[in-house]
């Protein structure tokens, strides 16, 4: 009787609870708990123990020294600024390149659309590292790609400005170039999703009321694709700001990005509280604008 009662209760409420509960369990176990550990670590004191931090005893329970260093040491401030700058420029370039591509995807025939979408996703099928190495080869001083750009540069500028090769590797330029290349699909796909939903009749209505195609784009297409622009922008900006591999492989070592610092503090310096503090600071820097955005998004949705 009681087992039957339970199964009846489960059929009524249990499945719903399970379906709703599982993602929360996932988030708590795999995101919230690790984050709390990192947060706790960031206020610990660095000690020559294993693991290399401790609380209490001769050490204060809460040590904000790591945060103090982040705020005052120019190295960290510069790294944050470099990260944000590179990520911002990458997101903007992705938008400039990705928008026409996404718009184009919505304007071609169904069969072409599937082929082109496939091509957008295709790079994911080869190893990310391999693709970065390919770019390293292309940007190197002796590559045909660099040679081509050098020739073009030398042809266009006065003879005094001529160069043997363009110094592309180990610069912020290289970091941004490879990040734009890597993250472009993350911009194109949400943009495509938001542009594809637009009613083509709206464009025609605007045209019918006297707007030229450029005005139609400004008045109708662009404002309606704003959610896609913001989603794509975040999908590029957030991982780009914390990027480790690309700046390590093609970036300028004397101008590190924040991901590089976290990695260095953890492994080489063995200063886990410092690494944790940088990670928390980065998270706060990324999460706050996201939350503001989703707050307004929810407000806009709520009024529907």
């Amino acid at each position: 009787m009681s087992t039957e009662g339970f199964s009846r209760w489960f059929d009524r409420k249990g499945w719903v609870g399970l379906v709703i509960g599982l993602p929360y369990v996932w988030l708590v176990v795999l995101f919230l708990l690790p984050f709390l550990i990192v947060l706790a670590m960031s206020v610990a004191t660095n000690t020559p123990t294993a693991p290399p931090f401790s609380f209490g005893g001769e050490h204060p329970w809460i040590n904000l020294g790591a945060y103090e260093r982040i705020a005052t040491d120019g190295l960290y401030v510069r790294a944050f600024l470099t990260s944000i700058f590179n990520a911002f420029v990458s997101a903007m370039l992705c938008l400039l390149i990705g928008y026409p591509m996404a718009l184009g995807l919505t304007r071609v025939s169904k069969s072409w659309r599937n082929i082109l979408l496939m091509l957008v996703i295709l790079p994911f099928w080869t190893s990310f590292l391999l693709r970065v190495y390919a770019w390293m080869g292309l940007m190197g001083k002796n590559s045909w790609f660099n040679g081509l750009l050098t020739d073009a540069w030398n042809f266009l500028v006065p003879i005094d400005w001529a160069v043997k090769s363009i110094p592309m590797m180990n610069s912020n330029f290289a970091v941004v170039l490879v990040m734009v290349y890597t993250y472009l699909p993350f911009m194109i796909l949400p943009l495509y999703a938001s542009l594809e939903r637009l009613d083509p009749n709206l464009d025609e209505a605007a045209m019918d009321l006297g707007s030229r195609p450029a005005q139609v784009f400004r008045d109708v297409t662009l404002p309606q694709s704003l959610p896609g622009i913001i989603a794509g922008g975040m999908l590029v900006f957030i991982p780009a700001a914390g990027e480790l591999v690309i700046p390590t492989l093609v970036g300028n070592a004397s101008q590190p990005m924040i991901g590089r610092l976290i990695s260095d503090e953890f492994s080489q310096a063995r200063d886990w509280p410092m690494a944790a503090a940088i990670a928390v600071a980065l998270l706060v820097l990324m999460v706050v604008p996201t939350m503001i955005y989703s707050h307004y998004q929810a407000k806009a949705e709520g009024s529907k």
Partner: peptide, 19 residues
């Protein structure tokens, strides 16, 4: 072109700008 015609259309879907 449509934008130069003194002709306006009421679309079946109404095509009202949602924003």
């Amino acid at each position: 072109p449509p934008w130069e015609r003194p002709v306006h259309m009421m679309f079946q879907s109404y095509a009202i700008f949602p924003h």
